[in-house]
Design a protein around this nucleic acid. Structure first.
Lengths: 178, 178
DNA sequence: CCAACCATGTAAGCTGTTACATGATTGA
DNA sequence: TCAATCATGTAACAGCTTACATGGTTGG
């Protein structure tokens, strides 16, 4: 009964997995880094943390200020691992980069390789299906401007696919995949 | 007191501006075309249409089935026009393609040109700021994998910028901008 | 001492999702 | 006649946003 963790929830789990942080510190991450369009402030993070605690995935441990620092529980660790291990699917693409970032913290490097492989496969597939859509729709039926808009989608997923291939090379070259 | 129309609301206004449609026909558009990850079904569209009606932006006119077909009111037309005329800003980028599609239905072609110009400017700017971020962060501080993730963002906005330039050429060549 | 920042929360409200429910019409 | 599809809705709920509210600590 895994209580459905949201993307924001996983983002938080990923961050406190890197190192224990306070709610405030977590907010700062969202405010200052280009990570996550994930919301911003109080009313989002604190309730989300509360729900993680209730779900038994995170807990606070003592120390001075406020309620202390959030740590992963063993269950939280399992949940995070499960999320990271899932293969990329077509509607995941928004969530995908978030996972990629946190995959780095997972000791099993083959998960990163698997991620990049499935990410590339899915984006290539999507680019191809858009290409076919555009091809089939030629002539009239669909106005040029609409086709141009679809082409935008095609180009960006294509860029994503190219990125995946590049990323594999780079990480390999840097010895990050061993 | 413009009652804040959502993206979904504008998508609906744009569609019924093209031609009057029933709620069901509108749903079909979202289901069958690669337009809009915009939701899908009953519980989204009907309430949204209701709120457009309440806001005086759309109305149904008679004829056989159900409640009839939705038409724009003059106020709806003004609202749609205002939305289309706005220049692209940095956090708009998701919404932007939606607008681009509907700009085609606007008689004033210079709006499309203005859109493409500001779209290109914003995406180029964003790409540049990410490039700087990556450059400043070299060495340690930021782990490679995080940098690789940011690079993904950079590449996709760059693809968007390139698309804008291309789109201007194509539409111009097709005589769509006159 | 005062501003800035650390730190946490609550309350109201809006959107959208899922799932359920209903009935009319059309075509095989 | 029976299934599919047209057609419209409603109720419950989840998630996030905005805005408000509060108080401690630190540095200039």
């Amino acid at each position: 009964m895994a209580k459905t963790v949201t993307n924001l929830g996983f983002a938080l789990l990923g961050l406190i997995n890197q190192k224990p942080r306070s709610g405030y510190a977590l907010r700062k991450v969202f405010e200052t880094t280009p990570m996550g369009s994930y919301s911003s402030s109080p009313g989002s993070i604190y309730p989300a943390l509360e729900s993680l605690r209730k779900a038994g995935l995170a807990e606070t441990r003592g120390e001075g200020r406020g309620k202390g620092l959030f740590h992963l529980t063993p269950e939280g660790s399992v949940a995070l691992h499960g999320w990271l291990s899932a293969s990329v699917s077509a509607d995941d693409l928004g969530e995908a980069m978030l996972r990629f970032v946190f995959l780095r913290d997972h000791p099993n490097r083959s998960l990163t390789v698997a991620f990049l492989d499935s990410f590339e496969a899915v984006t290539k597939e999507k680019a191809e299906s858009l290409r076919q859509f555009l091809e089939s729709e030629t002539g009239r039926a669909m106005p040029i401007q609409a086709r141009v808009a679809v082409e935008h989608g095609r180009r960006t997923v294509e860029a994503s696919a190219a990125w995946a291939a590049w990323a594999r090379q780079i990480l390999d070259a840097e010895g990050e995949l061993e």
